[in-house]
Each structure stands twice: as C-alpha cells, then as structure tokens.
Amino acid sequence: MKASKLMIDNTLKYNKGLDILKQSPFRITKQRKDLLAYLSKFETTYIPVTEVDAYMQKLYPNASHTTTYRNIKEFSDLGIIEQRTEDGQLNVKFQCDFVTPHHGHFFCQNCHRVIKLDATLAPKLQADLAQFVILTVKLEIFGLCDNCQKNQAS
C-alpha cells in the first residue's frame, strides 16, 4: 500500500474513533487523542498493552500507567478497539469493523497478521442455536495466510 493511501486510511480510522469518543461521556484530551492516533495504526495486528503503555510513557513521562490502562478500557468499552488475551497478556488492536462489531478473526501463525471474518456467515450454527439468545460471537481461526503460504512455497 502506498504511503499516502496508508496515511489517508489511518486518518479515516482515527477520525471514526474520535467521532465515537466525542459522542461518549469522556473528555477529549491530548493524551486520549495521541493514544487513539497510535492505536489506529494497528488494525491488522494486535499489540501488547505493555507496548502501548511504553509508547505513551515516552510521550507523557509523568503520566501514570493507570491512566493508559483506563483509557484502553474506555476505548474497548466504546468499541473503538478490540481486546484479547494471549498467554496471560492483554493485547489490543483498532476496531476493524465499526458496522459489524461482532465478527471473527483469522490469525496468521507466521506473520501475525489478523484478518476480519464475517461471523454472521454461520446460518446453520444460528439455526442450531435458535432457542438461545446469542450475546456475542468470538470466532478465531488460526493458520497461515496467503502471503506466508506463497513465501513458504518459493
């Protein structure tokens, strides 16, 4: 992807997150905007929260770790970011689908790229569970992405 297109995509993602934040009860602070801008770069990969905190500590050396973790939780509650725990470590990424927040992911075990899956593509499963109320869907599939398969074949 060309640098200018990437910058436009990141700006659009950032603006969508900022719009959601503006509609929330939370104040728009410089620190939250900087955190949002940083996280908007991570739509296709998860990043450990400790790395996010380290980045924010470089920008705001006097800020508490608690502030960063609280802001991450607030962003997650608002649906701006997605969270998952792997090996006991909390990881986050920017929301890849603001229209369909209940979706799945394919995780490449080699390059760690994350690809959004439409979890609503499971009508048989939904039919089998028709008597139940589904509150959330967490679909995770692990394997090798197309790029890694090509690289291994060559």
Rank of each mutant, 00 (worst) to 15 (best):
M1I: 05
S4K: 05
S4A: 14
M7P: 00
M7I: 05
M7W: 15
I8T: 14
L12Q: 14
Y14F: 07
Y14G: 10
G17Y: 04
I28E: 13
T29R: 05
T29A: 11
K30E: 09
K30Y: 03
K41L: 06
E43S: 13
T44P: 03
T44K: 06
T44A: 04
Y46D: 07
Y46C: 03
E51M: 13
V52K: 01
D53Q: 09
A54G: 11
K58V: 11
K58E: 08
P61D: 09
S64H: 09
S64G: 11
T66I: 05
T67S: 05
T67Y: 00
Y69K: 03
E74M: 12
F75R: 07
S76W: 08
D77S: 12
L78Y: 05
I81M: 02
E82Q: 15
E82A: 05
R84C: 13
G88M: 12
G88D: 13
Q89H: 09
F94T: 03
F98W: 01
F98C: 09
T100Y: 04
T100C: 06
H102S: 07
H102A: 00
H102L: 09
H105Q: 10
F107H: 06
C108Q: 07
C108L: 11
K116C: 13
L117A: 15
D118M: 09
D118C: 08
A119I: 06
T120E: 11
A122M: 03
K124T: 01
Q126S: 06
A127N: 05
D128W: 00
Q131N: 06
V133S: 12
L135T: 04
V137G: 08
L139M: 08
I141N: 03
G143L: 00
N147W: 02
C148W: 00
S154L: 13
S154G: 14
